[in-house]
Amino acid sequence: MITRSALAVPSTILLALALAGCSDNMKKSFGLEANPPDAYQVGTLPPLSLPPELGQLQTPNPGQPPTQQVNAAEQGANIISASNALPSGPQQISPAGEAFLNQAGPTPQGNIRAEVNQNAAVASKSGNFVDKLMGSNPNAPAVVNADAEQRRLQENAALGEPATKGSTPQESTAHPGLFQRVLNMF
Rank of each mutant, 00 (worst) to 15 (best):
T12Y: 15
E74V: 13
G43K: 02
Q41R: 14
T12E: 05
L159W: 05
V122H: 07
V116N: 03
I112D: 02
G160K: 03
L48V: 12
I93Y: 13
Q109V: 13
L178I: 10
R152F: 02
Q56Y: 14
F129H: 10
F30G: 08
F186N: 08
E155S: 11
N128Y: 08
A6K: 10
K28T: 10
N156S: 00
A34G: 07
T67S: 05
P108D: 03
S29G: 14
I79Q: 11
P65V: 05
E155W: 06
T168L: 07
G55Y: 09
A72Q: 05
E33H: 12
P36F: 01
Q75D: 11
M26V: 07
F30V: 05
A174C: 06
S136T: 10
S49P: 01
Q103N: 10
Q92P: 09
I80N: 03
F179W: 05
G76E: 15
E171I: 08
G105K: 08
A16S: 11
P52K: 10
T173H: 08
M185S: 06
I2D: 07
S49D: 08
Q109I: 12
T107P: 01
T67Y: 02
V182W: 13
P95E: 00
A73L: 12
N128G: 10
F129M: 13
A8D: 14
L15C: 06
N139T: 04
G127W: 01
P176A: 05
S124A: 15
S136A: 11
G127H: 01
R4N: 13
Q170T: 14
S172Y: 09
S88K: 10
V122L: 04
G76L: 13
A104L: 10
E171T: 05
G43P: 03
G166M: 00
I2T: 10
G21Q: 05
G177E: 06
Q103D: 11
N35Q: 15
N128C: 04
V42K: 01
A72I: 03
L101P: 00
S126D: 02
V122D: 03
A120F: 14
Q92G: 11
R113H: 11
Q68C: 07
T59E: 08
A73K: 08
P65Y: 01
P66S: 05
N156W: 01
M185K: 06
